[in-house]
Simulated scan of single mutants.
Amino acid sequence: MDRKPLKIGELTARIPVIQGGMGVGVSLGGLAGSVAAAGGVGVISTAQIGWREEDFKKNPLEANFRAVKKEIAKARELAQGGIIGVNIMVATQHYQDYVKTAVSAGIDLIISGAGLPIDLPKMVENSKTKIAPIVSSLKSLHVICKMWDRKYHRAPDLVVIEGPKAGGHLGFTKEELSDTDALDYDSVIRSIILQTREYEEKFGKEIPVVVAGGIFDREDMDHALSLGADGVQMGTRFVTTYECDASPAYKQAYIKAEKEDICIVQSPVGMPGRAIKNEFMERVKAKRQPIPYCYHCITTCKPKEIPYCITDALVQAVEGNVDHGLLFCGANAYRCRKLEYVKDIFQELA
C-alpha cells in the first residue's frame, strides 16, 4: 500500500508514523528525536518526566517542568528538522502548566488523552503548536469537537484513535480489554474517521486521523490505512530499539515476555491498563506497598487508599529494577524478539 506523507497543518512527516508517548521515561528526547530524524513524528511523554532530577522527591512539579524543556531540546538536536510532539495526560495534576511549559519550549504537537482535553485550545492560543485529542469512541470525538467549536471555534489538527490493544492507561473497561476481538473495533475506527471527514468539511481544514493500539508491523499498518486512516501510532515496537530511553533490563523484559505473560491490571489511579506479569504484580496483590512520597501525578490518585504508588512502580521499571516495578505494554509486546534500530523499523514501514 502506498505511503502518503502525514500532513498536520504546515508540518509534514515523510512516513505516516507517530511514535506513541510512553511514560515514565520510556520515550524521552533520545527516542523521539531519533524517530523524527527517520521521518516520523517523535513523541516525548511528560508523565513524571523529571524523575532523574535531584530534587524530584521534594519538588516533583518543578523537576518535571525543567525536564520537559531539557528533553524537548535534546530531541531537537537529534531530529534533523523533524516533528517533535509531547503526550500530556489530561488527568495529570497541573495539566495546564505542563501544556504551557511545552508550548513555551516550542513543541510542534501536543497529543492528549486520559480524559477530555476540553480547554486545550485556549492553552495553546497565539502559538504554532498543533493539538490532537486521543479518542477511543465516536462519542468522545463528538464531545471534544463540539466543545472546541462552541468555546474556541477550533477543530483538532489531528485525531488519534487509540484502540483496546494499546499500552498504558486505556479508555476501556477491564471486560472489554479481556476480549478485544469481540469489540469489532474496526467498525468504531471507520465511524470515527467518517465523522472526522464531516468535521473537515465544516471547518474547511484537513484533519488527519491516525490509528493506535496493536500496530506492530507493516501488515498492521496496511490494515489501519485500509480502514481510511492517514497514518498510525506505534509505541510497543519502539521500546526494544537501541534508541529507546528505557534501561536495557526494561527492554529485555519485553523481549523475554510470552503472550501469556501479558495481562490486564487495574491501575491504582483508577484506570485499567496492560502490563507484563512479574514479581512486583504478585507482591501488590498480597500486600499494600508503603508510599513514602506523593509525587502529585494523577488527579484521581488517593494516596491513603491505593495499593502502591504508580510513579514509584514505573520509575523502578524504567531504571531496570524490573522485578520491583510495573511494566506497562501493548498487546503485542510478546512479538518483540530483538533489539533493533529506529531507522530499520522505518525502512520496513516505508
Rank of each mutant, 00 (worst) to 15 (best):
residue 115 G to I: 02
residue 279 E to S: 12
residue 213 G to K: 07
residue 347 Q to E: 12
residue 74 K to W: 00
residue 220 D to S: 15
residue 55 D to N: 12
residue 123 M to T: 03
residue 4 K to T: 15
residue 256 K to D: 09
residue 270 G to P: 08
residue 74 K to Y: 01
residue 89 M to P: 07
residue 95 Y to F: 11
residue 342 V to M: 09
residue 173 T to K: 05
residue 22 M to N: 05
residue 347 Q to N: 12
residue 81 G to C: 13
residue 329 C to A: 14
residue 134 I to D: 00
residue 93 Q to V: 14
residue 344 D to G: 10
residue 175 E to Q: 15
residue 214 G to A: 03
residue 4 K to C: 12
residue 321 N to G: 03
residue 160 V to K: 00
residue 165 K to G: 09
residue 269 V to F: 05
residue 29 G to T: 14
residue 119 D to M: 04
residue 328 F to L: 14
residue 112 S to P: 01
residue 76 R to H: 13
residue 131 I to T: 02
residue 312 D to C: 13
residue 294 C to D: 14
residue 25 G to P: 05
residue 103 V to M: 09
residue 186 D to V: 00
residue 69 K to M: 08
residue 255 I to V: 14
residue 237 R to K: 12
residue 10 E to S: 11
residue 44 I to Y: 04
residue 62 E to M: 10
residue 197 R to M: 08
residue 27 S to T: 08
residue 113 G to W: 09
residue 242 Y to E: 15
residue 124 V to M: 15
residue 141 L to F: 03
residue 319 E to S: 08
residue 24 V to C: 02
residue 202 K to D: 01
residue 212 A to N: 07
residue 321 N to V: 03
residue 296 H to C: 06
residue 111 I to W: 07
residue 29 G to L: 08
residue 337 R to I: 09
residue 340 E to N: 06
residue 286 A to E: 12
residue 90 V to E: 03
residue 283 R to G: 11
residue 307 P to H: 04
residue 201 E to T: 14
residue 322 V to F: 09
residue 211 V to R: 10
residue 66 R to N: 09
residue 127 S to F: 07
residue 306 I to G: 01
